[in-house]
Design a protein around this nucleic acid. Structure first.
Lengths: 227, 227
DNA sequence: TCGGGAACAGTTGTACACAAATAGCCTTCC
DNA sequence: GGAAGGCTATTTGTGTACAACTGTTCCCGA
């Protein structure tokens, strides 16, 4: 029995239960609790969550469609491998989509958005003082979601989210331990810069900065991948 | 027993069967064989295809994730409604993605691509001489897929395809019969123009023309929607 | 000793029975 | 007459047993 299984019991509708399953598994994959190549057993997972294979399989099928899993009859369900060269296409597209956040229905920051980014700034400061891999990964995800709220274009948000979860694992895999504190500083600077844009109410500027940092991040990733 | 059910029997692997189911249902939805609001019964479909509900439900779940269906326990599985105002966000994004086809890994047209577009040109000419709604719809889809081959960026192709199938139904619903032959001429001109670009080997130009026609099409759609 | 083949263990895919939930209808009571 | 509540038919969601498939291992024969 895990936390997730109790959540599942409380969930009201089937759709809620699906969301819990899906996001739980996706988080485990993207935080490398399930590293690439991991063999996931449907039966074992169903037992852990206290449900049958049927609802679980729905979540697994969507994760497969999103490129995070790969199932084959007789073999099993495997977490997909991440290869820098294959993911470069995803990165190229993410660069462009991030710029579109500032072009397609940019949202004028209201109090809720400002508060959201203020909390991001606090967490970035905290991470800088106490570097931690798990907190780094979590902030990376949460800041992504915060940034997504800056566009009102829902399809753009959906597409960006899928692409994000296809690429975010690679950071945790490729960053050398010796460079971790340097990467923390870089992420901190990016978040501070973008929060400043939000404070000014300039979303397109935030999008450009985000794109620039993504581009630089991609370049650094390439160097890490070669090493 | 339908054509699809015999195809399913011949299919070698489970994945092949899934693909057949998925594309069959998607085509029925996007060609308005199943108009928006249609009640799809899992049991009826399973009987028609000669399979059980289990494999069918996988295909339905993916179609739901793609925004073409909506399922609710106790109610049923409904084909989603299409609303011009809601789809305008999708169209805005499609405009940008089409331009990216010319920017991200544009493929130098080889013999296979040239032959593909040559056949498109022939079909456009044929359609102009014999206007037909079904042929119009089919050519619209096939030309979309042909255009997608012009970029080597696979994630871009996947995203564009999903967005395309979210919007292509609306044409068949909104074009007034009195304007059908005019729309046929416009599509013919677009295909000819883009084929000329391909003959010259200029993919970015083809992408710009495609984007321009998408934009004009969106404007005309808006007029049709108001009427 | 090496090679091939068959049996086996383990996995996902499929079929089917039942549970849960909803909408519409009907009854009943105010 | 109207409204509220329950009943029922129909639908999707879930659990479970079995089929199909794959990789491995072990045994037998050359």
């Amino acid at each position: 029995m895990t936390d997730t299984s109790t959540l599942l019991e409380q969930a009201a509708s089937a759709q809620d239960r699906f969301e819990i399953l899906f996001s739980t598994l996706r988080e485990r994959i993207s935080t490398l609790i399930y590293p690439p190549g991991t063999h996931l057993s449907e039966e074992a997972l169903a037992n852990e969550f206290g449900i049958s294979r049927s609802p679980l399989r729905k979540a697994l099928k969507i994760l497969e469609a999103d490129g995070l899993l790969q199932s084959q009859q007789g073999v099993g369900t495997l977490v997909t491998e991440v290869d820098f060269n294959e993911l470069s296409q995803v990165y190229q597209l993410r660069l462009e989509l991030n710029e579109l956040v500032g072009k397609l229905e940019p949202q004028t920051p209201d109090d809720r958005i400002r508060a959201l980014f203020a909390s991001m700034r606090e967490r970035a400061d905290l991470l800088l003082r106490q570097p931690d891999l798990k907190a780094f990964s979590r902030l990376n995800m949460d800041f992504f979601h915060a940034f997504q709220t800056l566009t009102g274009n829902q399809p753009l948000r959906d597409m960006s989210e899928k692409l994000f979860y296809q690429t975010c694992r690679i950071w945790l895999m490729l960053i050398p331990e010796s460079n971790f504190s340097k990467e923390v500083k870089i992420m901190h600077d990016e978040i501070i810069s973008i929060c400043d844009c939000i404070d000014l109410g300039d979303v397109p500027a935030a999008a450009l900065i985000r794109r620039a940092h993504l581009s630089m991040g991609y370049t650094r990733l390439g160097a890490y991948a070669q090493a």
